[in-house]
Design a protein around this nucleic acid. Structure first.
Lengths: 125, 125
DNA sequence: CCGGATCCGATCTGATACTG
DNA sequence: CAGTATCAGATCGGATCCGG
């Protein structure tokens, strides 16, 4: 429902693999975020998830379904319409996700420094 | 530090892959838990991490080190002694971890039911 | 004691092409 | 529109053996 998903919802310059915290597989966290505001169609999800192939999106969604985090609804008709939505369980996961995201945001520069081999202060020769 | 690590700290019957939340690689979360009470030696870590091979433990520790979550200290001497400890950054991660663990604990049965294909209530024919 | 080197199978991810 | 089939590449976790 509601507003269409922002195509630039996930900044490609922001490699989220800097964060030690992961939710499900590579895409699961982003999918859950996409479903936060309400049910979304398959094609709708593909927009912010730049470049994800249908197969990969399908597999991630199936896994989320198997784990009880996402529900799938098929509406037969002239054109096929499949909607995905968070289950109550999946919605509950938003809490821990917010905590993880906030933590990562607060320590982004430290995480970045660590990767780049930056030393505390004056040791930087 | 202090007390030795409980060898049964991680229940093998408790497949943590039921939880959608993961910290780093397969072992990172457990390693961080092991370091919660203070620095630990390499061999010490291998006890609760039943069956982990030296190579894999080394790799996980190196990754944690690269990401700035764990520090490594070598004390040369008659016998080699290497200690690992949480950095302030790594220690901060305990917060989000606690949140994730608590959430998983609270929803354990729902997660289990989903995996076993249990339907809500009376739909179980 | 604390690893590194090598090799291997399993899993993950994706590109490409095709379908009800 | 919403997938499936197939194939290829990368990464992961681990067994086994070797070294400082």
């Amino acid at each position: 429902m509601a507003a269409p998903l922002d195509p630039e919802m996930f900044d490609p310059v922001c490699p989220s693999d800097l964060s030690p915290v992961r939710f499900g597989d590579k895409w699961a966290g982003m999918i859950i975020r996409c479903l936060e505001a309400g049910p979304r169609r398959f094609s709708e999800l593909r927009v912010p998830l730049r470049g994800i192939t249908a197969k990969v999106l399908t597999r991630s969604l199936r896994t989320l379904e198997r784990d009880g985090l996402v529900g799938r609804t098929v509406q037969a008709g002239p054109v096929r319409r499949v909607e995905y939505a968070l289950t109550p369980l999946g919605r509950g996961l938003l809490g821990p996700m917010d905590v993880a995201c906030e933590w990562t945001g607060r320590h982004w520069d430290e995480l970045l420094d660590a990767r780049e081999g930056v030393v505390p202060v004056s040791a930087a020769d």
